[in-house]
Structure formats: C-alpha cells, structure tokens
Computed example of a mutant assay.
Amino acid sequence: MAVLHNRVSGEELKRRLYEETEPRTTISFYQYFPVQNPQEFRDHLYKHLYNLKVFGRIYIAKEGINAQVSVPQSNFETFKTFLYSISELNNLRLNIAVDDDGKSFWVLSVKVREKIVADGITDPGFSMENKGRYVNAEQMNELLQKDDTIVIDMRNHYEYEVGHFEKAIEIPSDTFREQLPMAVDMMKGNEEKNIIMYCTGGIRCEKASAYMLHNGFKNVFHLEGGIINYAKQVKGNNQPSRFIGKNFVFDNRLGERITEDVIAKCHQCGKPCDTHTNCANNGCHLLFIQCEECRQKYDGCCSTECKETIHLPLERQKQIRKGIDKGRNVFNKSKVRLRPKLNG
C-alpha cells in the first residue's frame, strides 16, 4: 500500500535531515488552474514526491497549487520532469532560493485547502482568467522610472519592513483578505495609472492584479515570480536592483538578502538591523527583529519578562503557557494590539 502520510516523528525526521550529506535545492512554485478533484490530485503528488525524498509544504485547492519544497540535487531533474508531465504544470516557473542551505524542511506535507491563498472573495463574477500583465525585472525597472506608475506591496508589514521596492506603498493590514479591498479603496482616483502589484513569489500579487481589474482599474501589472524571481533576474543579467534590503521568506531562514541595505531597526534598541527571530520563550514565540547585542542581552527573548520565564523550571513554564492563546504573534505596526511591550 502506498504511503500517503508521514508516520515518523518530527524529531526523527529532523535528525535524518541533518545527517544527509547530499545538498538540497529549495524551490517555490504555484499555478492557478482548475483542479477537478483536489484530494485525488493531492494523493497523486504525495506518492511521487515522497519517493523522490521531497520535503516541504504543498497546498492544493480547486483553484490550483502552491508549494515550497526542498529536493535532493540528484533528484531535481526527475522532480522537474514529473511536474512537467502534468499538463497544467508543463514549463511551470520554479523559483530556486538564492540564499539557502537546503535544511528548511524535514517532512513532506501536502494538504487540500479551500483556496491556495485565502482571499475572502465571495463575488461569483470574479475570475482568475482576467488578470494583470506579467512584468519581468527589466520591465519592472522601466516602469518604476515613470511618474504615472504606482507600486503596491501585497505582503505583510513584517515582510515590508525589512525590504521593499523603492517608493512601494504598503497596504497596512495583517491579512491578504483585508488587503484586497483596502488596495481598491486606497487606489481610487488612479484607475488610469500604471499599477504594479508585487509579493514574495507571485501568488498573492497575481490574484491581487485580477481583483484590481475586476474593480475597474485599467493598467494593472504584476511582477512575474515575485521578488524571488526578480532577484534572480537582476543578478543574472547584471541589472540594478530596485528592491532594497531583505526578502522575507517563510521557512527557517526568515530572509534572503537581496541588497546590502539594512532599512529596518532592532525592535529593542533601535539600531539598524533586519534579522527576524522568534522569541525563545515558547509561551510567546513572538516574531520580531533583534540585533546580536540584544539577542545576547535578552537570551533571544523579546522582553525581560520572557527572559525570566525561560530560566524557570520546565514545569513552571508549562503552567504559565497553559491556556494562553498566542494568536498571530507578530510584531506589526498596523496591528499594535498584537504586539507586547518590547523592553530595551
């Protein structure tokens, strides 16, 4: 009987990963296309990718696929051949991480979801078939020099904070579903201007471009492959990068450096810093920016309170954590109520 789910503990899988000697390649990709039977498609993917020792997370929905995985280098071509054997994924663009050790994932997770990116759209007239025009890195740089161009960042605040395109507008919300109507409201009166949407890998800005067209905007573009593909193109073609700083990524690295600019500050002391970390107190686990000096001062914690907590006996720590709802524990200026006081 084929294996369709992981049956080994996370600790054991992580141990095996770090014992591997063969390098891995980290890849992200997505595609909007109609999936008639998401569960059947999910099982088909899992069986083949499991045999290729692929790790990572993949979401399947009726609207398509969204994935971030790592593949042993010796299996990369077989992996690509398998993906391209699926007609809707043939010649799919694969975003290969530019700054990665291949140790971000140690288990394969393939899940069926309602949508590959939650959008809150309920209008039955909305369709992904009518979306904005792709722009590559060279076209992006050209459009950025025009006065009638507006650039919209469709990522969260903590992503925007450490890196973004020059003159990019931040949509101040925590969730993509809130950002979509906010972007429409913020752009009213600019229906005839060039509007470029961008995000990390392209999946959010592609849907956002379709939503803007659906709401009457005329000249809508979206960055093909997002920041990941843009960084690869400017580097490969020796072009100037109009994206400055770091590109936040959703794995253990928490960031890929695109340029040497450090545009963010340590949330504790205010020094220039763009290193994200999670609070070492498991009862907090706040995502925030911390410099090396503050990391040592607070033992990797976001506050003196959390620092004191991690030095308590484990049983006492468990008692403190019991019943706490951490919610979306992210340092976010757009949602100040989510942020505990950072001492410093």
Rank of each mutant, 00 (worst) to 15 (best):
G120P: 00
R57Y: 09
D174V: 12
M154G: 10
V98W: 02
E63Y: 01
V98M: 13
S173W: 00
N75P: 03
K131W: 07
A168N: 02
F105S: 14
A118G: 04
G132K: 03
I58M: 11
Q179S: 05
H44R: 14
H157I: 11
E114P: 03
S70M: 09
V135D: 00
E77R: 12
L49E: 00
R155I: 04
F176W: 00
E114R: 15
R42N: 08
L89K: 03
E40R: 15
K53M: 10
K103E: 09
H164T: 09
D147H: 06
H48I: 08
H157T: 07
K115R: 14
T81I: 06
N66D: 03
K47G: 02
F105E: 05
Y84A: 04
R57I: 07
G56T: 11
T122C: 09
V162K: 04
R113I: 01
V98K: 15
V117L: 14
S87F: 10
I60F: 01
K111F: 06
G125A: 10
L92H: 05
V69R: 02
L83H: 04
N51R: 13
D148R: 10
N95S: 13
G120C: 05
S85R: 06
I116S: 00
H157K: 14
I65T: 08
I152P: 00
F41P: 08
H164A: 03
Y160Q: 08
T122N: 15
D101K: 10
V107G: 08
F126N: 02
L89A: 10
I171V: 15
N130F: 08
E63V: 03
V54R: 07
N75C: 14
K167M: 11
E142F: 06
L94P: 06
K111M: 06
P124H: 08
E88W: 04
S104D: 13
G102E: 09
G102L: 12
V135M: 08
G132F: 04
I96N: 01
S109Q: 14
F165Q: 01
D174F: 09
Y134S: 08
Q179L: 01
F76S: 04
K47I: 06
